[in-house]
Simulated assay, not measured.
Amino acid sequence: MATIDGVPVTDTAAPGTSGLLLKRRLRRKPALLAPGAFDALSALMIEQAGFEAMFISGSGISYTQLARPDIGLISLDQLCQVTRRVRDRLETPLIVDADNGFGDAINVEHTVRALERAGASAVLIDDQAFPKRAGALTGKTFVTPATMAEKVRAAVNARREANTLVIARTDALPHEGIEASLARAHLYVEAGADALFIDQPQSLEDYQRIAAEFPDTPLVANMIEGGSSPALSASELTELGFGLVIASGSLVRGFAAMAERLLAVLKRDGSTAALSDQLLTFGALNERLGLSQIADQGRRFDPAFRLETLMSTHDDKEGGQ
């Protein structure tokens, strides 16, 4: 069962439940660590690993659903579809990356309502203009601070539940500097943002300045391998004053790296035997997917119901775990 702040979450699809717990958790130490998910399987693995929340990553969806870089190609419908599938399977609170809200303030209202219905606990909106780019890419353009503040107000007003969090993100720091980014962030808080994400601090001093500037606002940081920000751990970011740390792309990069290794071995050897101790067995995977629970549920209606693997499970407790 998912928990947040030590409280069991029995129905995060219930209006406002997960958002309220998430809001409370963001104000406690240590910082909440939320890996990035991009489909129901990755989300399930995050929940089973014991994380209290997860980040539905727009970039991860672009990578896995389109096999394209994060350059603004995914649609709101695609984002809602992934969010619904994850929410249907899991109870864990979902922080959903809604890019720039897919348009102006009117589009943002529609985006927030759609993602709430899909099961989002929090919606993150950034201040990029079209075309949208990943934060770590060049070529970004930005709406004016006043326009973004209008979008934040629209998001706050659109939510059906007061406990659905609105997280405002600015990607402007590497382009406009720390002072301009802080000025943007102040406007976003005044517009009603529940939390702030000032992406890509360029130095430890930038992190410290952000934390000092917003001591009463939950702050978000992103852990990205090889990024332009200093590589800090969740514990270090906690000490600096950050409340939410996302690892938005770590899991998809790990999956891609393992896929490359496996496919190279399969092509070389005509078999995956050389990696067998690093792979889940058929039985182990099905247990993680809930085969036993589904079988138990089936027997409630039909005592003769059978659903079990015909493949050997003797090695399920080996390296495949």
Rank of each mutant, 00 (worst) to 15 (best):
P303F: 03
T164P: 00
E308K: 10
Y188W: 10
F255N: 01
A122T: 04
L279T: 01
Q200G: 00
V108M: 04
A247H: 12
S250D: 07
T92G: 00
R27S: 14
L275H: 03
L26Y: 13
L66V: 05
T111G: 03
G290T: 05
A105G: 04
T3D: 02
D97P: 12
R133D: 11
L232T: 05
Q128A: 07
P131E: 04
F102A: 02
S292E: 15
G16T: 08
A13V: 03
R133Q: 15
A221E: 09
D97M: 06
M45W: 08
G135W: 02
I294F: 15
F282P: 04
D77G: 10
R306I: 13
K317F: 09
T309F: 00
M54Y: 06
S292P: 01
T141E: 12
A295L: 04
M311R: 12
D99T: 10
G19C: 14
K23H: 14
R85M: 06
V252T: 13
A149T: 09
A154V: 03
L310H: 15
A195I: 07
D97I: 10
I56S: 01
Q293N: 09
Q321D: 12
E205K: 12
E52S: 12
D99L: 13
Q65K: 08
A231H: 15
R261V: 13
A234Q: 13
K151E: 03
Y63M: 12
R84Y: 04
A274I: 04
R89D: 08
A154W: 07
A195W: 03
A172F: 00
R261N: 06
L115M: 06
A120D: 05
D97N: 07
K140E: 11
L44V: 07
V156C: 11
A118T: 06
D127R: 05
T138W: 00
F214M: 09
V245A: 03
G119A: 14
L79C: 12
D269W: 05
P35L: 08
A13P: 01
Q278F: 03
A234D: 09
P303K: 05
R261A: 11
Y207V: 00
V7S: 12
P8Y: 02
A180Q: 13
S59W: 11
S203Y: 01
V189H: 14
A273H: 15
E308C: 08
L279S: 03
A304K: 09
L307G: 05
L21T: 02
A118V: 05
R160N: 08
A259D: 06
F38Q: 02
I210G: 04
P218F: 08
M223I: 15
S276A: 15
A129L: 07
I125F: 02
